[in-house]
Design a protein around this nucleic acid. Structure first.
Lengths: 345, 345
DNA sequence: GTGAAAGCGCTAACAA
DNA sequence: TTGTTAGCGCTTTCAC
């Protein structure tokens, strides 16, 4: 990096200019009260005049504290994480910390590398939807405080959105609309949330006596919604529950292109209530996710500003136009009438 | 932050364990070749066994280099920045740097604070759509390399998307469809891109002999699209060009709610081609923006990996369904026939 | 090829 | 109240 850098003004420069010792300058700036008002003011004036900026790296060395916190997300382009980032950033700043955001590209290896590197730089780490093995998690936590978002691991503080209850609400909603056969378009199986959603969905479906199948897994992106839609359709289910909104939106796009009426012929539900789920076509019924609050709470947890260690956030179902009464008869497969789709994958 | 931290393994620990001096360990680990193969291997084995992790803060103090780069965006929840973040992150990592992302909340003050704080921590800064005064920019740049995205300032390297050409394409497209009266729904006036877009739009409109008005300014978010739509409609224009896609999507939503046909009654155009602009209703005609590439190029510029210093990225217009032939007569205002809207703001 | 020692800029004992 | 000094963990001369 070619760049002529002005030599930074240091404490020494200020001390020399003010005719005092460096330690006095240090105190005057960061520990006032332990220095006489006169010298304090004089020093501050000099610092101001010289445009002194403390070197945060040097400050961090003795204390071991950088006043920086890290937030690692699997995919920064997933709108689901916006609120998380924003909430965490706000709370971190309020507490005097700078938030560092990292993208792990849905890869456990990258997550590990990132966390390792950041481990010696930040004062604490938030892992969102972590894919790290428990052993790695513990290793990390032995160096720095670690909190988890949407992953439950014994001994780790964290916050989760109540996916299981969201799943319950979905089933209840669909059953009320007369659906007798549901397909779950699964997400990545190594995601904790995928397991929780599927288990809750199947439990409640069985309890209600309606058929449910797990299809996929699919990458949780809009692009992979087409494949998911086709498989879902072929299953004969009258309601498609996608792992997340991105996938659901992709499904909706495919169905629209195919000329399949939603919710006339098939209902579609997502998880997360992301940006776009209210203006896609038709607007998506989905489980909301208070990510902003999650972000703030995670930082509080990290900073030890809360008494509790495990926070579960409520996730009310938001009913929009992508769900409706079950079609009287499933047209697919020509079998005339709803049937339980055969499990796949 | 309560947390029992395992005392980190240091170079000294490794040195003692291996029976050599710290300087030798340092060399063996970061400057091999300057140490005999035998001791090198032995030292590495010890380091591995002890799970030694270099303290990056301590590494950074003597060198002044942290191997971290910062990217400051005005609003991390604006999908326009996703690609930017992703491209920059990838390129930074490829070059051995860690990218730190900061959200300035569309505030020059916050941008300044953030940049100041990060200034002593990172090796370089990317400012996206910066609102900083030129003096502040120069002050910052005297400490660390600074590159700009979508803001042109003399003496600063950077990349801009070709908004002016995008505007030209929009006007050409609308004129070809028979529109004679266009309204620009302006964004924040302190944004460099807002000025560029408006100037190019008005220049080309005048050149083509069609009326154009600047309305607003509006906050560039979906939520503010309703107000923009109402004002745009009242102006009598047959085509609404929004400052960006977020605003355009908000306009679309409002028009749909109002039962106003798009593009039957009014055409709508945006800038950026963000996530969602292809599945909103109707899909939005917009000026694309190669943000991924921009992100990568910005990092290259920052690291001095390119010969040029000013990069202009092409922005082809993507025509979707939100634009169509001008309505034969504007129904608003009952004046019967298109007219030039009166300028506002 | 390896070790000793001097700093990087700051904080925090400890003295005065 | 203020100054002196010893580190924080690492890199980098400079000797040997």
């Amino acid at each position: 990096m070619r760049h002529r850098e002005a030599r930074a003004v240091t404490l020494h420069d200020v001390a020399r200019e003010a005719g005092v010792a460096v330690s006095t300058v240090s105190r005057a700036l960061s520990n006032p009260g332990r220095v006489s008002p006169r010298t304090r003011d004089r020093i501050r004036a000099v610092a101001q005049r010289l445009d002194y900026q403390p070197n945060r790296i040097a400050q961090a060395l003795p204390s071991g504290r950088t006043q920086m916190l890290a937030l690692l997300v699997p995919d920064i382009t997933n709108p689901h994480h916006f609120g998380l980032v924003r909430g965490a950033e706000a709370q971190a700043r309020a507490a005097g910390y700078t938030l560092v955001i990292g993208d792990t590209q849905e890869s456990p290896e990258l997550e590990s590398v990132h966390a390792q590197r950041l481990g010696s730089v930040v004062d604490g780490i938030v892992l969102a939807a972590s894919r790290l093995a428990e052993a790695d998690l513990h290793a990390l936590a032995s160096r720095r405080p670690v909190v988890l978002f949407n992953r439950e691991v014994d001994g780790f503080p964290g916050v989760v959105t109540d996916s299981a209850d969201g799943a319950r609400q979905i089933v209840q909603h669909l059953v009320a609309l007369g659906h007798r056969s549901i397909a779950y378009l699964a997400g990545p199986p190594d995601l904790w949330t995928d397991g929780v959603r599927w288990r809750a969905l199947s439990t409640h479906a069985e309890r209600a006596g309606v058929g449910i199948a797990r299809l996929g897994p699919f990458s949780p992106t809009v692009d992979h919604g087409a494949a998911a839609a086709d498989v879902g359709l072929a299953s004969g289910a009258t309601a498609l529950v996608a792992f997340n909104d991105l996938l659901a939106i992709g499904v909706l796009r495919r169905l629209e292109r195919l000329g399949i009426a939603v919710p006339g012929r098939v209902s579609v539900v997502g998880f997360d209530d992301v940006f776009g789920s209210d203006f896609c076509h038709p607007p998506l019924t989905t489980v909301t996710s208070p990510v902003d609050q999650a972000g703030r709470t995670l930082i509080d947890l990290l900073l030890g500003a809360r008494a509790d260690r495990q926070v579960v956030l409520p996730t009310p179902l938001r009913v929009r136009d992508s769900t409706g009464p079950a079609a009287p008869a499933a047209a697919t497969g020509g079998s005339g009438g709803p049937r339980t789709p055969s499990p796949r994958s």
